[in-house]
């Protein structure tokens, strides 16, 4: 749970910064959130999924 939220937060925020930098209108924020969610799920599986 914590992993998922922090994954989306961290990479969503980095994506948002890239958005601001390159003027991408939220594209990088979306990609970043997805990457973060995927990373969070991966960490959860790694740590709790045996």
């Amino acid at each position: 749970m914590g992993y998922l939220i922090s994954g989306i937060l961290v990479w969503g925020f980095i994506g948002w910064l890239i958005d601001r930098w390159l003027g991408l209108d939220g594209l990088a924020t979306g990609i970043g959130s997805l990457v973060g969610a995927a990373g969070g799920v991966y960490l959860i599986l790694r740590r709790f999924g045996g």
């Binding site: 914590g2 922090s6 961290v10 990479w11 990457v35 991966y42």
Partner: peptide
């Protein structure tokens, strides 16, 4: 660091950091 392929470590380490040292005390 969790045992994981080296290629995904740059993605995972910030998540680990934020979830353990930022989100935990806040929540």
């Amino acid at each position: 660091f969790l045992p994981a392929p080296l290629a995904v470590q740059p993605i995972l380490i910030p998540i680990e950091f934020v979830s353990t040292f930022v989100v935990r005390p806040l929540t």
